[in-house]
Design a protein around this nucleic acid. Structure first.
Lengths: 147, 147
DNA sequence: GTAACTGCAAACGCTTTGCACCAAG
DNA sequence: CTTGGTGCAAAGCGTTTGCAGTTAC
């Protein structure tokens, strides 16, 4: 049982600012998300959270994720085979690197993309408004275990 | 009613090579996918296809998509708000550019990514096995209509 | 003739909604 | 005390499965 992540109090504060109340369920859900370094399905958050707070309901997980996503604190992660997992959103301009072995995620900077995006915009005539860039691979731990 | 896309006969041939039979339902589904320049949901393929072949069933659409995806002819497209649409797969090393106005899709080359990917691999210790890169924007037609 | 394919209906699993009770402020 | 939050049960919806009849080859 580690002490609460400092981000957790920040998130709770932001929820309150947006008109939400601080509740035990939300504390639990926020803690679970921030203490896990991989994207989780709503059901996983529910199961992990329920170990700490036995009354927790799955519906509350869905509703809390919805609010956290609206505040930009959490993002939905798309992967081959699952697009219903959630992860804390990156701060600033970062992209995701996901281990296909254990699911562990890391963020990296991807600013070098700008020239490529401009080239594509010029050639296609599109006004580019958003880009998705995500890498998949094996983290160093998982490389060892598949030797 | 245009004449059948030349790719269509190629796809049917590939299906046959892999042990499938040529049927009216599959012809219809393949034609619908190849004649549309945006990613379609199974239900949309079913509805468009049903106008041409009244007996077509939704389940057959699902089963055909599954086979086409396994053969690498079709890919699932992920977008904010929908990850159940299908599009013909790119030939070679191409990425998707999607119009958020009309859904129209184009492919573009993205080979400039290699150095960035190598940098991330070096810094993180991951072995990068796959990358997703996708651009969203407004095509020239949709830019006009929002003026 | 045989094995693959078909469409329908039912089952399935994830997500959302309705509702009565509860708790934060 | 008021309003937002909660969990449960039920509804909703996209997808998959079971099955009996049909069709490609």
């Amino acid at each position: 049982m580690t002490s609460r992540n400092s981000l957790a109090s920040e998130w709770i504060r932001l929820l309150q600012t947006s008109g939400c109340r601080q509740t035990e369920a939300r504390n639990t859900i926020v803690d679970v998300i921030l203490e896990t370094n991989r994207a989780l399905e709503p059901l996983e958050i529910f199961e992990i959270g329920r170990k700490r707070q036995s009354g927790l309901g799955l519906v509350t997980v869905y509703r809390t994720l919805e609010r956290l996503e609206a505040l930009g604190l959490v993002q939905r992660v798309h992967q081959p085979g699952a697009c219903n997992t959630y992860l804390r959103a990156p701060q600033g301009h970062q992209h995701l690197l996901i281990c296909t072995g254990c699911g562990k995620t890391e963020f990296f900077q991807g600013d070098d993309l700008t020239p490529l995006i401009e080239t594509v915009a010029g050639r296609s005539g599109y006004v580019i408004t958003e880009h998705w860039f995500q890498l998949f691979g094996l983290c160093s731990d998982c490389q060892k275990s598949t030797d």
